[in-house]
Design a protein around this nucleic acid. Sequence first.
DNA 1: GTCGCAAGTCAACGACTGATGACTTATTAG
DNA 2: CTAATAAGTCATCAGTCGTTGACTTGCGAC
Lengths: 190, 190
Amino acid sequence: MSQPLPIRTRNAAATRAAILEAARNRFLRDGYDHVGLRAIAGDVGVDPALIPRYFGSKEGLFAEVLATTSKDPMEVIAGPRETFGIRVARALLDPGRRSPERMAFIQLATRSSASPTASALVRRHIERRFLKPFTEWLGGRRAAEKAWLTACLLTGVAVMTSIERRAAPEDTEAAIRTLGALLQSVVDDA
Amino acid sequence: MSQPLPIRTRNAAATRAAILEAARNRFLRDGYDHVGLRAIAGDVGVDPALIPRYFGSKEGLFAEVLATTSKDPMEVIAGPRETFGIRVARALLDPGRRSPERMAFIQLATRSSASPTASALVRRHIERRFLKPFTEWLGGRRAAEKAWLTACLLTGVAVMTSIERRAAPEDTEAAIRTLGALLQSVVDDA
DNA sequence: GTCGCAAGTCAACGACTGATGACTTATTAG
DNA sequence: CTAATAAGTCATCAGTCGTTGACTTGCGAC
């Protein structure tokens, strides 16, 4: 799951950061409910009891993961409005360009939305870090509606790609273009 | 959760059906992981041990729920192709018309997609009962791609409406029209 | 060098889950 | 009326989970 677990010199800040990172990877892949504190601690090579200590609770850990995974959605969105669709579609589907960071909060959100404790955090997060800034970026009337529809598309793609084995139906590049066109049509008109 | 729990005369087929129905409601609302056999049994007024007996396991119960919730997606889809978008959008978002049965498998799928054991069943189900017949109904080339995009939209809407409190951003009727137009554009062209 | 405090470990608790096998009860056939 | 069989109950197991408090270990200041 990680490097040969180098000998850790005692350093609270560093281990805290390592736990946060390991938790992010686990939560991204398996969702809130199916990640145990023991698994995260195992990845870091540390005792599970440290996690409630450092983050208050599992929920607190998830909240911090969510917060630190969240600064980027607008980095992908912001840019020339004419290429919005293709940019976002590529960030979502392109296996080469799909880095763990960008648009990752979408995966995080969809994978954990079923959990009652996590979904409250996820809802607040989507509202504040995606719907609101994206609505402002869009501007004009019906901007909120467009933002909501876009969120539906993004989460839907995230769910489908996580349910199915493959990322896109057959030809990834074609799927990117089609999804991009659809996203663009949402933003452009109605 | 149910009627005043009428005195049950011993009848294996009837209790089996009652368990299946109660399980469907629970799974729809809370997803696979967050439904306990004890809760389902409690709804029916029956001992939890009956469930592994009648359905083999919790997974077996979920599989049967999935199978018996699945006959209907094409009932909504099938119809004049020109009104496809608005029909499906209304089935998804209209609080009045949204009966528990139609399009319910989408809710079931999205709510349980995070669970490793459930997601395998969900994947098979979506493929066989939605993507395949819908692709055939669409016809023409790129039909599979259109079907996939439609599935993304539907699951996305399901996730967003389950994450957020309200069903649609503000004006439900307007959201139905917008979503309907978007769905229609997917089906019509590219 | 040693003392103090922070960093990390350990064992364990209480709650919950799905599942099992032995038990009891009701229904129905003879 | 009674016996046989199906229907349902009960206590309980083994496992996992997040969390806790007491313990030990190591680093840095004096």
